[in-house]
């Protein structure tokens, strides 16, 4: 009988599961090493970068967690998916268009953007609206240095960040989970705040695709989804931008989305968070612990209403 043939494999010849499952890692690693020789731009060393007084002294989350647990819905809604599929993102050539209410619109190539300002290492807390957090050593420069490349008109009050939409490379944009392209926005004074950065790398190297290569926004006092990935266009406007998440759930995601332990998400509490790699939960800090630097941006505002 055919079934009997299974007996001919002796147990000692069967590859242990753990080893078998590492095979992919090994293949990926060797492919990476091989590619690194051919394509110097991929995972290029950018850092370490100037150290910054804005960095915190908490222990950074291990690189493998930072690069394997991502919300990048264009590459799938499971957090493990972007790490598997984002290699398809086309990151070169890359241009960034800056337009809207400006004297003269500008288009910058990624090579020029990388030379705009000295790169700094910014070790920031990152708090996701879902109730988990990380500490990430970003590499980047203030958003302000980028916005200064153009002259905004007097009525410009907001900045809209429009991110890449590559349907041929992004398996997730076929589904209507969100309104593509993913759009985020900040008030102009928020965007000009020295804590807000454009990140081009993390852990001293170019941004992995799943983390928003080649350039992304990082606004550490707001929930993670405010920090748009793979930005292609920045638009100055006089009206509050309608972001993708505001369109998806206007009662759940507001324009400001500042980290606030006192204002719960309608469906879950925001009082505590789980730092990735830790067992117990931590208390979530107002403005994610950046209150001293940013609270003056919101004086006189009802943060419960402007959630």
């Amino acid at each position: 009988m055919l079934i009997r043939r299974a007996d001919s494999i002796i147990p000692s010849e069967i590859t242990p599961r753990a080893l078998f499952e590492r095979r992919r890692d090994f293949l990926r690693l060797s492919a990476g090493i091989a590619l690194a020789g051919v394509l110097p731009s991929a995972h290029a060393k950018l850092g370490p970068g100037k150290s910054s007084p804005y960095s915190i002294s908490e222990t950074p989350t291990p690189l493998k967690h930072v690069t394997s647990y991502n919300n990048y819905y264009e590459f799938g809604t499971d957090k493990e998916e972007p790490a598997r599929t984002a290699h398809r993102l086309r990151v070169r050539p890359w241009t960034l268009q800056i337009d809207g209410l400006v004297k003269q619109a500008k288009t910058l190539g990624i090579e020029d953007i990388l030379k705009l300002a000295p790169l700094e290492e910014r070790i920031y807390r990152m708090r996701c609206v879902e109730g988990w957090s990380m500490v990430i050593p970003w590499l980047g420069f203030p958003v302000a240095s980028l916005l200064k490349q153009v002259q905004p008109l007097g009525n410009a009050k907001y900045v809209e960040f429009i991110t890449a939409n590559q349907p041929e490379n992004m398996p997730g944009v076929g589904s209507r989970v969100l309104d593509w392209p993913y759009v985020e926005g900040l008030r102009l004074d928020e965007a000009m705040h020295p804590l807000a950065i454009i990140a081009v790398g993390l852990y001293g190297e170019a941004l992995p695709n799943q983390n928003g290569a080649p350039l992304r926004l990082v606004v550490p006092w707001k929930y993670g989804f405010k920090s748009g990935k793979s930005i292609v266009r920045i638009r100055f406007t006089d009206r509050e931008p309608r972001t993708s998440w505001m369109k998806a759930g206007p009662s759940e995601y507001g324009f400001y989305s500042n980290v606030n332990p006192e204002v719960d998400h309608p469906r879950w509490s925001q009082a505590r968070e789980r730092r990735i790699g830790e067992f117990s939960k931590r208390k979530t800090l107002m403005f994610n612990g950046y209150g001293e630097q940013v609270s003056q941006l919101y004086t006189g505002m009802d943060l419960r209403k402007n959630f």
Binding site: A18, E21, K64, H65, S68, Y69, K79, E80, W132, R274, I276, G277, F279
Partner: peptide, 11 residues
């Protein structure tokens, strides 16, 4: 045990 459940095993 094998740390095979990703970055957030508790979840």
């Amino acid at each position: 045990q094998a740390d095979a459940l990703g970055a957030n095993p508790i979840e």
